[in-house]
Structure formats: structure tokens, C-alpha cells
Design a binder for these strands. Structure first.
Lengths: 336, 336
DNA sequence: ATGAAAGCGCTAACAC
DNA sequence: GTGTTAGCGCTTTCAT
């Protein structure tokens, strides 16, 4: 029993037509007579034929597949964005493949994936793509299509869809100020990250607007991980003079931080008010429930795919699309 | 400027050799003389040639790509398993593509992906694959390779790598018993899920071993989501008689549950002892820190890929491989 | 409306 | 060791 996958030719034989007709009957049903279409469809049933996309793509030079690059699959924040991309993509008949950029050679391999017509292009949630990817993608005739979502890379002409990080950070600080806080610290994201910079800028802007000082010893370095939040918590506990409120560049760090303080008998929000950024799922159910800045994640995913499709089809796209962020008030920040 | 991607033929011309030689020089450097290899490599540089995997795969009938099916990308638990798969895969030169099984038509599309030689096979972390996938995969000459990790599907001959869920659940209950608890409830996972059944079986087994009654009103229905934990918390609060301890089929539900109780003034572990299952990252930093069952996630990912590779290459694999789970004792369970 | 033939870019089989 | 030839499975002119 050879059990080979049936091909167009098998179907053609079974239907008593040519391979070309089978192809047409499947791809352009209108271009074929009612009678033959039925014959072909029946033959497809009989043989159990499924089109070999590989061969089809080789011919058509397009794949209806897209790769999404994520800096850290473990960060739940991204999954909602991916879901948004997926829902827009599946509507357009696209398959979405996700890949982590961190594994050794991961980015490289993925880029080859695209360069070789195995995917039409990519949406990157990681602003720090290897230079090799950036140079081989980013528009131009025959070049694979690249779109940034959430994060981005300045200077290149790559379209990006992003949240209003600076505005969101201002919202967070404004909230603390409205609660009567004036001694407000900040836990940064990883150095060299565009989100880190934007959120820090928003923090400084809001502080400046109210004539509040930005004390250098209250600006702590993190990297978006839970563990870096724990570490920052340790440093904070050793501060000679402590701020009454902290704004965190993301939720996960806030959790690590709050938990570390809790272990040392310092309670949020009793002893410290906290506002963070992202509103990941657990934020609402952390103890205390986290006051944080929410980003419309599903929407940004959809928008990113829409931008991708436009760019892939050669249409011009706006280079930067910004979606608004909103503040979700819960329990972790209290009046000073 | 045509700007067409260079092909083997372009390289061949530039190097003054045949296309076949170019192919050999690239794929099997030993099968070609030192001199020609250098010529070819230089020509590759000059032309900026990159192999078209699409065409290569069409010929080779193998892709060095694998698709991982995840029931829910948002659940952080899976990301570590994926990382394990990725590290084993990248060592073998494989690209890992991840896809969520939930989006409409998602499973179907992915299966086509494999059926069409765009990937060598798949590792599913979802035991409830659509029947169409199960029947078209699962071994046999020319059929795509399928391996289950974490979850599985009984009855089919599909190899699976899994944790000792039943044993882990027993560990959890034993711990509660050793703390002096005898009134122990359980929050189930989704109905029809193999993990739900295995963990519930472990719970019952441990209870039986100690002659403890399994009270039906203390067995609550959940579905692994945070929200279902919240819902179960509500039901629990209305119980005429409450258990002194609860074993949760996963961490997320425990968080929802604990948070809901906290909102109503019922504190864990003061008023209720909790043990859960998974040890996702936040578990250690939840308040209270969660006592839970840890599964070697990275290892299972590696094992799953190893099994996949064996199966793909036609070797026989053990049908079930079970990895042990361990109990991580933290703060959420206290003496009765 | 349909068939014949060419070819997408690559590699395996067979010569030499 | 290298070139020639054929063909992976499909789509797409170009005829008819």
C-alpha cells in the first residue's frame, strides 16, 4: 500500500479531466462549468485530496501565513495581543505562527522562515530585533513585510501600532497626585527598551507638571520580570527615606515588589501606594487588587494585522498608529 | 531593476558550476571539492543568495519545522513547556511555531499546515483536539507525526509525555492530611479533560487511603480559568458547612478563589488551607505564597520534542512517558 | 470551458 | 567530484 498523498493528477484522473481543470475548479469555481465542478468535487471526496500548500505557494509566491515574534511567551500580556492578531488574521484566511525571539538563534531562524517565502511577513512585539532581521525586512520590492506592535524601533521606516505609553504613565502619576501623593518613585523597565523610556518620560512629565521633584534614589532599575520587582523591593526597603507611592513600568514587577515588602511586614496600600502598567489578568485578583493602566490589547492585535495586510499588498500605511490607554482604579493606591 | 531573489542557477552561473553542485556545496559540503566549495560560497556572497526553503521542502519532503498546539496561550504554565520544546528543537535545527487551538478554525488550519508539508508534525498540549486532526495525524506511513505533551487522548496510539498528575494530587492531599486536615474539598478542572480526571482521581485515592469522606458538596466545578475560581469562591462562601482545606486542580483557579474570599473577609490560610497545582511563576509571589505541586515543565518540553523526533524518523517510541511532580510548600496551607 | 505544456526553485538519481 | 536530467505538486499562460 503506497498510501501516497493524492495529488491534483489523481483527482484529475478520477474526474476524467485535466489537472489544470482541477486546479481551476478549486481556486476559481466560476471559471469552470457546473458539471465539471461537481465531477471534480466528487473526485476530491473520493480521493481524499488536500491541496499541498507548499507547492501552491511555490507557484503563487505567497503563503497566507504570518509569523508573530514575541520577546517572552511567558508574559501573559502578549497573549491577548496575539489573540487579536489571530482573530483578524483568521478572518483574512491567514495562519498565525508565534515564535519566541529569545531562544538561541530564534530570531535568525524565523527571519529565514520569512525570507524563504514560508510566511508573508512578520509582526514583531519585540522592538529589539537583531539588526540582520531589521535590514532584510522593512519594505522595499520583494522584501518581506514587517510591522511592529506594542514595541517599536525608532529611525527605521517600519510601521508600528502602539499604545500611548507616555499618556498612560501620566494617567498613573496623575492618579497618585490626586490622591495627595507627592513623594512618588518609579521602577523602570529594562534599559534600552522603548517602553521603558516612554513610560519614564510620562512619569517625569506628570511630575514636572505638578512641580514635583524626581529623586534619583527613587528611580529603580528593573527589567519587566517578577524577579526584578523582588530585587527592587529589596533595594527599596533599604532606602534611608522612602517614597509614599510608586509607579511601576509593568504589573509583574509590581507583584514581585509588593510580595517582597509583604514578607518584611510592609503592606500595600497601607504603607505604600502602587500603580502599575498593563492590567494582566491576575491584576484584578492579586491581593491587593492592582490599580493599573490598561491597554486595549485585543484591538492593537487587530490593528497590527490590518496594517500588515495593507503593507504587504503594497498600500501605504500610516507609520505610527497610537491607541489610548486607560486607568483602572482598584485597591493598591490609597490617599496619602 | 528586476530585483528578483537570486536562485541556485544564478549562483551556479556566477561560480561557473552547475546548479546541482551549488546545492551540494550548501547541503553536503564534504561531497564537493575544497576549491569548488569556496567558489560557490563566494558566489553566494556576491549574489546574496538565500535558499528557498519552500522549494527545498517540496523536494525533500521534510521541513525542519514543528507546530506546537496550545489550548490557551494566555496560560503562563505553557510557556515554560514551549521553552523546553524550543531548546531541544533548536539544537536539532528545528523551527518551532506555536498556535492557539481556540481561535475559530484554528485547529483545522494548523492541521492543513502539517498535512501540506509545511511542518513535519505537531506537539499538542491540548488533549481535546478536533477529531479531524486526530484521524489525519497519529502515525501510519506518510501521516504527519503527532505527540501529546501534558495532556493526552486515551485510546489512540499517539505517544504522550506527561506529568504524574495523579501522584501529584496525592502529594497535595497528603500534605493537607499531615497538617491535620480531614475536611478537604476539591475544585475540579474543566469536564472531559484528562488532567481534571487524573487530579481528581489522585485526590480521591489519597482521601480513601486515610478513610476520609469525599463530600459531594465540597467538589466544585471549575475550568482552569481565574474566573471559574472566583465563581467557585462564591459558591463556597454559600456552603452551609465549609471544608477546612481545599485542593485546586490548578493555580489560577486558586488565585481567583482566594481573592474572592479575601473580598468577603475570609482569609487564606487563616480560615482555609489551600494547595494547588502547577506552580506558575506568580505562585511564589502571590499573597499568600501558594503551596502547590510543581511539574518539571522545561524537561517535559524537551522530552516531548525528543519523542517527536524519534516518531518522525520512524523509530518506535514508548507510548507513555511520565515525569514526577513535587510538592512546593509555601504559606497557603497551615495546620488545622 | 477545457487541455497541453511550461515552470516556480530546488535536490536526488544517474551518468561520467 | 561534477554535470545532466528529471521531477516534487501546483498554477498559469497559451492554445483550442
Amino acid at each position: 500500500m503506497p498510501n501516497r498523498q493524492p495529488t491534483v493528477r489523481d483527482v484529475a484522473q478520477a474526474a476524467g479531466v485535466s489537472a489544470a481543470t482541477v486546479s481551476r475548479a478549486l481556486s476559481f469555481p466560476d471559471k469552470v462549468s457546473e458539471a465539471t465542478r461537481l465531477k471534480v468535487l466528487r473526485a476530491v471526496e473520493e480521493t481524499g485530496y488536500v491541496v499541498n500548500q507548499l507547492a501552491r505557494n511555490l507557484r503563487r509566491r505567497t503563503t497566507s501565513a504570518i509569523v508573530v515574534l514575541v520577546p517572552n511567551l511567558g508574559n501573559q500580556f502578549f497573549s491577548h495581543i496575539i489573540a487579536g492578531i489571530e482573530s483578524a488574521a483568521s478572518r483574512a484566511g491567514y495562519t498565525v505562527l508565534v515564535s519566541d525571539t529569545r531562544p538561541p538563534g530564534g530570531g535568525e531562524m524565523l527571519m529565514d522562515f520569512v525570507r524563504n517565502n514560508r510566511a508573508d511577513g512578520l509582526i514583531s512585539l519585540d522592538g529589539n530585533l537583531p539588526g540582520s532581521i531589521l535590514s532584510s525586512a522593512s519594505g522595499g520590492r520583494g522584501r518581506p513585510t514587517l510591522v511592529f506592535a506594542c514595541e517599536w524601533h525608532d529611525g527605521l521606516g517600519v510601521p508600528s501600532v502602539r499604545f500611548d505609553n507616555e499618556g498612560g504613565a501620566e494617567l498613573a502619576v496623575e492618579h497618585l497626585v490626586s490622591l495627595g501623593h507627592s513623594r512618588i518613585g518609579h521602577l523602570l523597565g529594562p534599559p534600552g527598551n522603548v517602553l521603558t523610556d516612554a513610560r519614564f518620560a510620562g512619569y517625569r512629565r506628570a511630575m514636572a507638571r505638578h512641580g514635583l521633584p524626581v529623586r534619583e534614589d527613587w528611580i529603580l532599575q528593573g527589567d519587566f520580570t517578577l524577579e526584578s520587582g523582588v530585587q527592587a523591593g529589596r533595594e527599596w526597603l533599604e532606602l534611608a527615606e522612602r517614597p509614599g507611592a510608586m509607579f511601576f513600568a509593568n504589573d509583574e514587577m509590581a507583584f514581585g515588589f509588593i510580595s517582597e515588602l509583604h514578607g518584611k511586614g510592609v503592606e500595600v496600600p497601607r504603607d505604600l501606594s502602587v500603580v502599575a502598567f498593563d492590567d494582566i489578568d491576575i491584576a484584578e485578583r492579586y491581593i491587593p487588587a492592582l490599580t493599573t493602566v490598561r491597554q486595549p490589547r485585543h484591538e492593537i492585535g487587530e490593528a497590527a494585522f490590518a496594517t500588515f495586510l495593507k503593507a504587504f499588498n503594497g498600500a501605504t500605511t500610516e507609520l505610527v498608529r497610537t491607541l489610548p490607554a486607560t486607568l483602572i482604579v482598584r485597591d493598591s493606591a490609597r490617599p496619602a
